[in-house]
Design a binder for these strands. Structure first.
Lengths: 236, 236
DNA sequence: GTCTATATGGCGATAGAC
DNA sequence: GTCTATCGCCATATAGAC
């Protein structure tokens, strides 16, 4: 049914989902512009309706992953989860709020998977490579973030602020990581840490596009590994 | 009116538009899947209707650049060019054909701008950097290719084959360029030419996303220049 | 909490007059 | 070559029954 089963859902996002420190930290949790109420959904009554919510989020993820947010329809989401459109809109006030919930949901899942705040920068970089390798097994999720981040480039897109903040935050963490490497004298390349962060993030994004278009021709993890190794001047 | 005036339109695409050799060569001109007639438009009667055609293409470029192909509407294109929808559809059989024409049109314009087939690989790389710098002055066009290439990731997208072929072709040219550099002993980095091509392309794509999301924070050309210089082991 | 029914509007595309 | 008119579809969203 949901073509992203729970195994997949429990996993990761895209390099674009690196983000978000464990919990307390100053993460970039700008809620997506819904133009509606503060996306309340109190905390109560989770036992039963929580299941349905998660099912909806998984379905929405799969639908939005195919052609982006604008092309995906509530109809399709509702159909996949076996509800009417109106029933779906009982759980989420509108389409934008659903998108916001999907992204937020993925972030919660992904937060635990890459150590962006550790003391060992090498571990962080290895985490990125491992992430890239994992992503290759979840094309739907990669497609979601890839399409969505391009689409959200428009200032009026409901996820625009979300992605702006996400990138800014992630770049900050990467910059810090490369700063640690510089302090340890373990970076060969000459460009500053800001550039290294930009490039790393850009490379991961760009590889995804090429990989989605021709999955057999690229190994995202290998390319990223080679790039980072080149940066370090030694095998990562 | 058309927010891409002619000055801009006469210029370039996006790194994604590098492509296409001058004319005869084995370029990747897969026509976009229209599901319709072979997009005939004979060759006659170009003097008068040609103007209108170009005006439509410019308008369509601007419209599709805002949120992609799926979100852009023929209505909007028609409005921008001052026609009815039906009038527009007299020039192009359907929406897919219009997209195909837009891409093809841009390729024609862009073909002359970056020397992908020259004998001096350094010139080619410098051309890429110059292109990146130019692109920073045409955000609408960058947005078009950025959004579209992500969107066209879906196999059923009308421009899917177009982008697959485009990337394959461009990678090939870049690989050849790096091959020439290796032959001349002018590449420092250890990874193979295929990787260099992948990475360069990926970097350009990824930088565009970040630049579109936060134009002030990145200089695409500077970053690309730094990357290529690092690859060469010396200032490009 | 989920449904039916419906309001409202945008979309691509066609038919046919001028 | 361009128009008006219209069709049929799908979209988001709301109201109210169960």
């Amino acid at each position: 049914m949901s073509q992203l089963d729970h195994d997949q859902a429990a996993a990761f996002d895209g390099e674009r989902a690196i983000v978000k420190p464990s919990e307390g930290g100053g993460r970039p949790m700008t809620s997506v512009k819904t133009g509606n109420k503060p996306q309340g959904k109190p905390r109560g009554a989770y036992a039963k309706t929580g299941m349905k919510r998660v099912a909806i989020l998984d379905a929405a993820l799969a639908v939005f992953a195919n052609g982006g947010y604008r092309a995906g329809s509530l109809r399709e989401v509702a159909a996949q989860v076996g509800m009417s459109e109106a029933g779906l809109l009982h759980h989420f006030p509108n389409k934008s709020a659903l998108l916001a919930a999907v992204l937020s949901h993925r972030d919660d899942l992904s937060a635990t998977l890459v150590p962006m705040d550790g003391d060992d920068p090498i571990e962080t970089l290895r985490g990125l490579v491992a992430l890239a390798r994992y992503n290759a097994s979840v094309p739907g999720v990669v497609a979601l973030y890839c399409t969505l981040s391009a689409e959200a480039t428009s200032p009026d897109h409901p996820a625009h602020d979300y992605f702006v903040d996400r990138y800014e935050y992630t770049r900050g963490r990467l910059e810090r990581t490369f700063g640690l490497l510089v302090s340890a004298g373990r970076v060969r390349a000459d460009f500053p840490t800001t550039s290294a962060a930009f490039m790393t993030l850009a490379l991961m994004d760009g590889l995804q596009v090429q990989w989605l278009l021709a999955p057999e021709s690229v190994d995202m993890a290998d390319e990223l590994h080679a790039f980072l190794s080149g940066l370090l001047g030694q095998e990562l």
